[in-house]
């Protein structure tokens, strides 16, 4: 059975449905990109998959004995975090929270996990630095390292490259691709359709009242992709 199976799922916020009757499945090892215009419910769908919201209608079935503790999440940054006094190490370690249960302190395995994650993302030299003094790209790496610590099976990413320059964006995409190659299932919400077709194995394209779901190959030859590319040409000032 797939990790996630969505059956006629409708998601929305404040009582208003935005994406309706979605049917798709996420299998172990997939790299799914959720794309679409603003306000079509991409982030809301991701939050629903993370159980931060419940679907307004339909069912989300989880398989392979998936637990909350198998999931990692990289949310969009909040205002609140921008001046938060915390070191990189403190934040990355908090990713291990879902493994400690009632234990009050991190054990050596968890500390090592955090250290490895920081090394993997090249932020181990920043461990003692304050989060609010880092650049946008560095902050995003810190949050990704935290998400990696939490993720055993699935990694949810909500627009991970927003506000980053092209070089840092490229690096981050490569890191995520590597994680996926090492067996982690990746579900990413993105504005960046070019990156989606470049890296993802599957694409979910949501637009008003309809959606497309399929492999990247299928998506490239689909109407949704052509339409979106044309629209992009006319709406580039947006």
């Amino acid at each position: 059975m797939a990790l996630f199976t969505c059956q006629n799922v409708t998601v929305g916020y404040e009582g208003k449905a935005v994406a309706k009757n979605l049917n798709f499945a996420i299998n172990s090892g997939d790299y799914l990109c959720i794309v679409g215009e603003n306000g079509t419910g991409k982030s809301t769908l991701l939050k629903t998959l993370c159980k931060l919201k419940s679907p307004m209608d339909g069912n989300i079935l989880t398989g392979e004995n998936l637990k909350g503790a198998d999931v990692g999440y990289l949310p969009q940054q909040t205002e609140l975090q921008k001046d938060f006094p915390a070191t990189v190490k403190e934040i990355v370690q908090s990713g291990c929270l879902n493994k400690m249960g009632m234990r009050p302190i991190y054990n050596s395995t968890e500390k090592k996990m955090a250290k490895d994650a920081m090394e993997k993302l090249g932020i181990d030299v920043l461990a003692k630095k304050c989060y609010r003094e880092l650049s946008g790209g560095q902050q995003q790496r810190v949050l990704l390292a935290r998400a990696i610590c939490a993720a055993q099976k699935v990694l949810f990413l909500d627009e991970p490259v927003t506000g980053l320059d092209p070089k840092v964006t490229e690096e981050l995409y490569n890191l995520i691709e590597n994680l996926n190659k090492n067996g982690l299932t990746v579900v990413m919400v993105s504005h960046d359709i070019d990156a989606a077709v470049k890296y993802a194995s599957h694409v979910l394209h949501i637009s008003k009242n309809k959606y497309f779901y399929g492999t990247t190959q299928e998506y490239l030859s689909s109407k949704a992709f052509t339409l979106f590319n044309n629209e992009k040409g006319t709406n580039c000032h947006e």
């Binding site: 993370c50 159980k51 999440y73 949310p75 915390a86 990713g95 929270l97 009050p104 991190y106 949810f156």
Partner: peptide
């Protein structure tokens, strides 16, 4: 006793919820 949890909830509540805590 709950120091690390309180830190995590303070820094990012959504993350804590999403990862099953």
């Amino acid at each position: 006793f709950f120091y690390h949890k309180i830190f995590a909830v303070t820094f990012d509540e959504d993350f804590v919820k999403a990862v099953g805590v």
